[in-house]
């Protein structure tokens, strides 16, 4: 066993996939000898050479488009976007070209775009985003957002092996804050589209993902002391997402709260709520509620950021409301 951080788990996943499959190569800004802005790719250029760990110009459209072209020719490129906020620079080529390539043209387009997402790090409006909802609406893309060290590794490996384009959102708050023992030599592959039951409970289901799962688990501890048993679903994949696991849990607890770090309007929680309405409305004992960020760009000052982003206390309050309904 080895104690590894969330960040090291991503790096190990990349290294293992590059070792087992010579079609895998990396592209991104400052990822070579510098090892990337957060050092996720540190040491990989030494190990695999400059042809497989490629420093690019600051040109997200160019390297994501190039990843598609190389994927058509049978490669499995992985692009690092220095901060996931900058993925919007490549929004057009990603949603119009990459996402449609299989459907309209039968082109092999197995590529991964990964990068640091998320707030709680005082990064201000352009280094803190969770832009998942902008891509959720694009048939042809897959989106994953791990919460645990194990899934950080398992999902990067699954994303690389997937035959379709996958966006991999890695929460920068988790990079060095969480550690786990991962067995040496185990080929950890987390299936895309399958949720993880993070905590079993009876009275209320909370659906969440990425760093938010840890706040939900914290809230669940508090609620447990009050006699409220909370079931926590870590969605892990947002596109496609595990509707069955949610439905099964709703039929058990009859109450659902969706918690996400992204802003409220047009967020993932709305889609989850609609699916619950379609599938198991009659099993509900309370309206589906959500705890999300306020609908504002994410501000810098600690007082402002803490106010805007969901906190453990917000989750506890919403949960109490739900069980009392």
């Amino acid at each position: 066993m080895a104690l590894v951080t969330f960040l090291e788990a991503i790096r190990d996943g990349l290294r293992e996939e590059m070792e087992r499959d010579e079609r895998v190569f990396l592209m991104g800004e400052d990822i070579g000898s510098f090892g990337g802005a957060f050092k996720v790719t540190e040491g990989l250029q030494d190990r695999f050479g400059a042809e497989r760990v490629i420093d690019t110009p600051i040109a997200e459209t160019a390297f994501i488009g190039a990843a598609a072209g190389a994927a058509h020719m049978g490669f499995r490129p992985v692009c690092e976007v220095q901060f996931i906020d900058f993925l919007s620079c490549a929004y057009s080529i990603l949603t119009n070209y990459v996402a449609t390539a299989r459907y309209r043209a039968g082109l092999k387009t197995s590529l991964v775009v990964r990068g640091p997402s998320g707030g709680y790090v005082r990064g201000g409006p352009f280094h803190s985003q969770n832009p998942e909802a902008a891509y959720l609406h694009t048939p042809g893309l897959k989106i994953v957002a791990p919460a645990t060290v194990r899934d950080a590794k398992g999902l990067i490996k699954a994303a690389i092996r997937d035959d379709d384009p996958v966006l991999y959102f890695e929460h920068k708050y988790l990079y060095r804050r969480i550690k786990d023992d991962l067995p040496y030599g185990e080929d950890i592959v987390t299936p895309i589209g399958k949720a993880r039951l993070a905590r079993e409970g009876k009275h209320l289901t909370v659906v969440s993902w990425s760093a938010m799962v840890w706040k939900v688990l914290e809230a669940a501890e508090t609620l447990e002391k009050e006699g409220v048993s909370v079931e926590v679903i870590d969605l892990r994949s947002l596109l496609p997402f595990d509707e069955e696991s949610i439905v099964t849990s709703v039929k058990k607890t009859n109450r659902v709260l969706v918690v996400h770090e992204d802003t409220r309007t047009g967020g993932m929680a709305g889609e989850i709520t609609a699916r619950i309405n379609e599938r198991c409305f009659e099993w509900l004992d309370a309206p589906v509620r959500r705890v999300c960020a306020h609908d504002v760009p994410l501000p810098y000052a600690p007082t402002l950021e803490d106010f805007v982003l969901p906190q453990t206390d917000d989750i506890v309050k919403a949960a109490r409301w739900m069980v009392e309904y």
Partner: peptide, 24 residues
């Protein structure tokens, strides 16, 4: 031949990737 899509300019990056594959 790799067919274009409507978004003008996009095939230049994509052909970068195709020719990268030749180079690699």
């Amino acid at each position: 031949f790799l067919g274009q899509t409507s978004h003008l300019g996009d095939m230049v990056p994509v052909m970068c990737g195709v020719t990268m594959s030749f180079k690699l």
